[in-house]
């Protein structure tokens, strides 16, 4: 089952540059939350805070409180946090030296899965979920870099799903994909929200409208507004939200 996350007074910096200001947000379990906003407003930074990836950057700094099902992320080991809060990046990033199979199996092996039959089953299950199995089942031993961009991105989704996190963060997972791969990913998100909490960054308003239960609008490092998606796209409360979703800027 997915878990909820709560964010309170989150501030984040790159060096002296404050990127996020006093963000408060409740992310409900087993829901899809979309993050929208103009380029550079801090969407990626925000979700990178949610799995403590932001702080791996040498000049980065975070303040505030983030809880996963009530437990503070900063009381946990970041490695454990990232096992529970998985991430799909803006650009596909399969492990360049590994085969398709190993790209997924490595996370399982490190998480303690030893039996090869179990490994094979779980790799297959993850690939099926990401709608990639049929395309790669005959060449699992081939390097992952031999896949197309869209296939690589689905491989990365499978890789994140394989270790069964509670929350899945997706940073514009479809921005580099063709319409068909995009549709597959949207269907996949629809499916997995039974078992996962999903936070997805997107530039595509229609996509947010199609898949998200909740939508949050970021602007210049501030969370301007967050609401049910239908509410947000029909009756935004803030003028800036309205301007953005009607395409007046961004």
């Amino acid at each position: 089952m997915g878990k909820s996350m709560t964010v309170r007074r989150l501030n984040a910096w790159y060096g002296a540059h404050q990127v996020l200001h006093e963000i408060d947000m409740d992310i409900e379990e087993n829901r899809v939350t979309a993050i929208i906003g103009p380029s550079g407003c801090g969407k990626s930074t925000f979700i990178r805070c949610l799995n403590r990836m932001h702080e791996t950057h040498p000049q980065a700094r975070v303040e505030g409180d983030i809880r996963l099902a009530g437990e503070s992320l900063f009381d946990l080991d970041p490695v454990d946090v990232r096992r529970m809060v998985g991430m799909v990046f803006q650009k596909p990033n399969p492990f360049p030296t590994m085969s398709i199979f190993d790209n997924i199996a490595i996370g399982l092996k490190l998480a303690g899965v030893r039996r090869s039959s179990e490994l094979r089953d779980r790799v297959e299950r993850a690939l099926r979920m990401a709608a990639l199995w049929d395309e790669v089942k005959d060449r699992l031993a081939k390097p992952a870099t031999a896949l197309s961009g869209g296939q690589q991105q689905r491989l990365c989704i499978a890789r994140a799903l394989a270790v069964e996190p509670e929350v899945l963060l997706m940073d514009e997972p479809a921005s580099a994909l063709d319409p068909i791969s995009t549709m597959r990913i949207e269907e996949l998100i629809e499916e997995i929200k039974q078992t996962y909490t999903v936070v997805i960054v997107t530039h595509n308003m229609q996509q947010a409208a199609r898949i998200a239960d909740k939508t949050a609008f970021f602007y210049q490092g501030h969370l301007i507004e967050m609401d049910d998606t239908t509410q947000m796209f029909t009756k935004p409360k803030d003028k800036r939200t309205e301007d953005y979703i009607t395409g007046r800027f961004g």
Binding site: N51, M53, T56, V79, D80, R82, R83, G86, M87, F89, K91, N93, P94, F95, P96, T97, M98, I106, G107, L110, A111, C156, R159, A160, V163
Partner: peptide, 22 residues
């Protein structure tokens, strides 16, 4: 590539595992 190393961290690898496997 930083992105490859972040991919490793993203699935819960320790820094050493990122070095070792990526």
């Amino acid at each position: 590539p930083l992105l490859a190393r972040e991919g490793g961290l993203g699935i819960g690898m320790t820094s050493w595992e990122v070095v070792r496997y990526i």
